[in-house]
Amino acid sequence: MNLKLLVWRQKGPQAPGRMVEYPAPDVSPDMSFLEMLDVVNEGLIRKGEDPIAFDSDCREGICGMCSLVVNGVPHGPDRAATVCQLHMRRFHDGETIVVEPWRAAAFPVVKDLIVDRSAFDRIVAAGGYNTVKAGGAPDGNSILIPKDQAEQAMDAAQCIGCGACVAACKNASAALFVSAKVQHLASVPQGQPERYRRVRAMIAQLDREGFGSCSNEGECEAVCPKQIPIANIAAMNRDYVRAMMPGPLALALGGITEAFEDD
């Protein structure tokens, strides 16, 4: 396959960036997208040019490090997959592929396609944990958790913090990420003591980082490599209302939203 790449190049956080075209000749359809970029970079290095900087780590879809917007979709055209799991057979010969970084004020570009996602770390540090003395490992089944709650917690805990939700959202909102982190702890008994303090602290930090607000479109859910549903955002909002509103309002809203609950 012979392809053309249109890639965002930016020397540093303050430098202006621009789209630059590169040929990608002799690409094997069996290559992953990142392997293709590696090959293009080897060519650039041989020519004495600066290789395209991009993030990657595990290259098997579990670490959440890779972060490319391919042809206008975060992680590219495949569903429930990170961009490292995208293969070149998804493209056709002669195609021009547009490659961009996550775009959000809260994710400043470090270089080229690498963005700084430490905003997510600061949100988790604001409350996405349990304040407990860890001690030794507890005995198995010492805390009984109903199966459906355990499943719900595990589904939310699948979030790998890649930030595709922010990249896909027209408002660059991090609501899906934060809701996954909130819900994973709110679904199990261990998360209850700090449940409402946590949602309040994490949303306060979310706002300090400069993310947008949620328009409930669900682009985030559609690009999420772990398919985290936006129902988590509703659950987070529910907890936020209970945490923040005066008693009667929280009771009324809590009652109304409870009526739409299935479980």
């Binding site: 917007v69 961009e100 004020a105 993310f211 409930n216 669900g218 559609a222 690009v223």
Partner: peptide, 18 residues
Amino acid sequence: ARPVPYHAQVPVRHTSRK
């Protein structure tokens, strides 16, 4: 929240309600 726009952004479709 997004000062630099995408060069190309397309609707994701799939489960999205955009």
